[in-house]
């Protein structure tokens, strides 16, 4: 009996661990297919900063300074930041499949779309999604498309919304920005 419970507990623990790992892994978007668009693009950007580098970057931040300490904490747990983007001189140089390949990942379980802006006038489209796990953000995915442009930004790693809130005023986040992770972000009135 005891042995069965132990086995069950172990299995449950394993399952939980696997879930957490799976979440962390899923937060990393597969965006290498965009590389094939590079030769024909007029501008390309490819950024890969993994966890080790982020930790090195965090060494340059001072834990004794209030605003830097928050950032340091955030960087220490981040697993990576990845950006890929292409811009063409003419429209329709990439296919809907190129976009769908990213969108499908952002529509997968665990991801929640928090911002979606679509302009019919100029065809611009911005989608911001979060990978949420027990109230913690495990990843951020941003997909930006326009007839001539495709860009994906992917931040991977546990991000505490409280910490992001405390980052207001740093990293380009306006001081009056109000984070609401129940589904929207807005400026304070």
């Amino acid at each position: 009996m005891k042995s069965t419970l132990l086995k069950l507990a172990s299995l449950t623990l394993l399952a939980l661990l696997a879930t957490t790992t799976a979440f962390a892994q899923n937060a990393r978007l597969q965006i290498d297919h965009i590389d094939r668009l590079f030769p024909n693009a007029v501008e390309t950007i490819d950024v890969r900063v993994d966890g080790a580098l982020l930790q090195i970057a965090s060494k340059f931040l001072d834990k004794n300074r209030a605003n830097e300490a928050q950032v340091k904490d955030l960087l220490n747990v981040l697993k990576g930041v990845y950006v890929k983007g292409v811009e063409f001189d003419q429209a329709n140089q990439f296919t809907e499949q190129d976009v769908e390949a990213v969108r499908q990942q952002l529509n997968a379980p665990g991801w929640s779309k928090i911002v979606g802006v679509r302009s019919k006038r100029d065809g611009d489209n911005v989608e911001v999604s979060l990978m949420l796990n027990n109230g913690l953000i495990e990843g951020i995915g941003v997909l930006v498309t326009s007839p001539k442009q495709l860009m994906v930004v992917n931040v991977v790693g546990p991000i505490d919304p409280e910490k992001i809130t405390e980052l207001r005023g740093s990293f380009g986040i306006p001081k009056d920005f109000d984070f609401d992770f129940s589904g929207s972000s807005r400026r304070r009135n």
Partner: peptide, 21 residues
Amino acid sequence: HLNKIGILFGGSGGGLLGGES
């Protein structure tokens, strides 16, 4: 276009690793 790099480093200063662009 360099500001796209600024997503991380802020192009001419700033970004995820260095404050607002």
